[in-house]
Structure formats: C-alpha cells, structure tokens
Nucleic acid binder design. Structure first.
Lengths: 234, 234
DNA sequence: ACCTGAACACCGTTCAAGT
DNA sequence: ACCTGAACACCGTTCAAGT
C-alpha cells in the first residue's frame, strides 16, 4: 500500500526493533516461493516445503502471511513487476498488443504462473498499475471508460485462459498424462471429421502463433469498434 | 469410448456377474460429485466426503477412478453434455455465438465449474463433440482447418478465462475475501485515474454484458478475417 | 469382483512456550 | 517480536483382508 522507500509524512515512531532482527520478511519469502514454484510446480508448493527452503518451521510463515492464499496473491503480484511501464509503440493498437504480450510473458516466466495468477486477486501496485496503463492506452485512443474497462477485462481473460492452457500442455503428467497421443487416438477413433482435419493445430506446439491469432482477432474487432464511433466525446 | 447402448459387434462374453452387484458405478459417482460440488465448492470436494455421500469408504472410489484427477475429468466431461448439438442460427457467426454462450452456461451451471474444466483435459464424447461442432461451423463458413482450429481455441480460452473470473467474483471468501470494497479502496488510495473512472465496470456485476462484449470483439475480428479471404478454397 | 479397515505420508493452520 | 515444537483436523492413495 505505502511506498517502500521514503515514507511521505507519517508518525514513524516504531520502537528501535526490540528482540532480534527477523530472519524472514515478505519479499524474501515470496522470492523463495517463486524459486520453489519453478523447481517443483504449484502442487508441490506447500507451506512446509517453503518453510524448509527458507530455513524455518512451517508455523513461522504465518507471522508474515495470514494464509497460503495470501502468499499466492503476493506471488502473483510479484510476477507482474515491470509490466505497467507505458509501452512505446506509435499507435494505440500496437501499445495494446505489447501489453498483452507482456502479460503472457510474465505468466510464462514461472512454472504454473497462469494457474497462480488465475487463483488470486491481487490489489497490489503491479496489478493495479498494469490495469491503469492498459485502460490509459484505451482512454487516450478515444474509448470511453466503460469500453476501456470491458476491453481490458476481455484481453486479460483471453490471455489468462490461453496461458493456462499453454502451461498445462507444456509439462506432461501434471494434469493430463498423454495429451497429444491420447487426443489423437480419441479423435480418430470417435469419427470426428472436422476435428481430425484440425488435429495438427490442436496438438501443435506453436503457442505463440495461437496467442497472436486470438489477440489479432480481438484487436481487429476493437479497431472496428473504434471506427464505429467511440471518438473523443462518445 | 463405445456407445453406452447397443454394443455394435463385439465378443460380449463377460461372465454373468459373479459376486454381488456393484454398489457404485462411474455415472452415479460423477453425479454425486457434481451435487457435492454445487453444495460445497471445489475446495471441499474430497474423496472422503464424496465416499461418504455415496455411502462407501474412500478407498472404494479408486476401483472406479484411478485418481481424483480422473474423477474431475469425468465431471468436466459431464458438464458439457448437450453442448455439441448443431446450433440452428441462420448465419455462421450466430451459430458460433450460440456455441460460446452454451459453453459459458454449461460451466456456470455448476459451482466452480470453470475451475473444474480448466484443471482437466477430457477426451470424452461431449468435449470432442463440442469441438467437432464448433470447428464444423467454421469449416462450413469457409474457413480452412487451421483458422478454424485457432478460432475454436481462442473462443474457448476466452470463455474459460471469463467464466473463471465470473465464478470467482460470484462467491466471496473463496479466494478473494473482499473484492469490491478492497479493490475500490486500493484503487482510490493508489492514485490510478483511469482505473478510478473504470471502477463501476470493474466492480460491476453484469457478467453477461462483459462476456458478450468480448465475444462481440472476437466475432467482429473473425468477420474481418472471413472477408479478407478464407473463401471456399483458401 | 467389490468393498472395508487401516495404514502411509503427507497437508494448512493454530498456539502455548521459549528466547 | 519472532520463532519452535507439537498438536489438530484433515488430505490422496494403497492394500491386505474380508465377503
């Protein structure tokens, strides 16, 4: 909530740190949690294992995070660090594309990143800053606040939905044991002609092309909406 | 895999049911699991509680589902029942809209339905049938198999992403304790002007309008792509 | 063949007690 | 103030033994 450096104007009279200095703090814990996440995945991220990793008993974590859910929220918030800088593309649709790509990249940067993000609702500076930048780009493009908000939600939902699937497909055994083979077999055995023709794409691994296709659809639709009249004063 | 009634042509020589008849079968178990899901939510759906609900010990469930993940997959598959019937709208974009709405409705029909769906990868008849119908509509509209597959994935990802968020917002305490109030406070305290203007939509509850907005964007983009040339032989 | 009973190896969370 | 140790009330999963 408050800026971490230079507290603006508050009664900063906390007693000079009685007892010994804490061996743990939120930042270090979140960092360790993300390392553990990358190494073992979300299902293996337990409070006990995290406590082990930071050299503490499990109960001690609850002095810094009230629940595991709070920890996950802090992790999601941390993932979006650096995503809210204003993009530098010349036109608004390029700026929007950049923001969407940035979010996918941030989620992909950690194993099960999309799952962590989808399961939380951070109201931290990174999350809110990203939304502010996103809606700001749309505002400056001439969209009203309602259309801007709806558009931002749409793009985020699409990005999360896509990346969830992408990361699920990326690592086998996590939730779907034999996706490519099993799907292929079920489709051909079941007699689904259109599905059979689509199999190469459905079992293909070009997730970036898939993401860009959907994002392109969204932006094309948005450009049509823009033309249709949400001008400077619509 | 095989049709439940009238097995076509197979050596149906299983011995006449030695021992006593099973008290459990997959269908009944999945139905009970969905009832339990609706009553208590995904986090409270445990193998032990489900066993209790069907009047059996927890271990007995493993004779019908190898893992809990398999049970969840069967539940997701069951949720899509009736979604693959060909839609009757006159134009292809209306048919696509109908299919997307149908999927959202199916996920919304059960508490945490989107979360269950997003966590599984069914290759059952309902899931595959829905995909077949979806891609079929696009094929008949003149899209090639690649564009049809990419479009289907895009719409499904968007629908899942949206409904995940919708169901998370619907019930408080499940993963975000005080979304509306907490978000409102954080936004106004943090000084996010565009976000503040967008707050009414972001904290609003008209999820259908939000879903339709994004779906409209997607379809508008798709119509542009259709015009651009994926004609009968593209 | 199907289910019970009991166990194994864990969970998230709480809280007195220590320092 | 911060952490330990130990407990509480659970998990998913396995498997001998019963019927």
């Amino acid at each position: 909530m408050s800026a971490p450096s230079t507290p603006p104007a508050a009664a900063d009279t906390r007693p000079p740190a009685r007892g010994r200095p804490p061996r743990l703090d939120q930042t270090r814990t979140v960092e360790a949690a993300l390392v553990l996440l990358d190494a073992s995945g979300l299902d293996a991220l337990t409070m006990r294992r995290l406590a082990d990793a930071v050299g503490v008993q499990a109960g001690a974590l609850y002095r810094h995070f009230a629940t595991k859910q709070d920890l996950l929220t802090a992790m999601a918030e941390r993932m979006l660090e650096g995503c809210s800088a204003p993009p530098s593309d010349p036109d608004w649709s390029g700026r929007l594309t950049a923001l969407a790509r940035r979010m996918r990249t941030a989620l992909l940067a950690h194993r099960d990143g999309a799952r962590v993000y989808a399961g939380t609702h951070s109201t931290g500076a990174n999350t809110l800053g990203f939304a502010e930048t996103f809606i700001g780009v749309l505002s400056e493009a001439g969209f009203g606040p309602q259309e801007a908000a709806r558009t931002a939600l749409t793009v985020v939902h699409y990005t999360v939905g896509h990346t969830l699937e992408e990361q699920a497909a990326l690592q086998p055994g996590d939730q779907g044991p034999a996706d490519p083979g099993q799907l292929r077999e079920a489709v051909t055995a079941g007699g689904f002609p259109h599905l059979t023709a689509a199999l190469p794409v459905l079992t293909g691994a070009d997730f970036t092309a898939q993401f860009e296709f959907g994002l392109g659809l969204l932006l094309q639709g948005l450009r049509a909406l823009h033309r249709a009249g949400s001008g400077p004063a619509a």
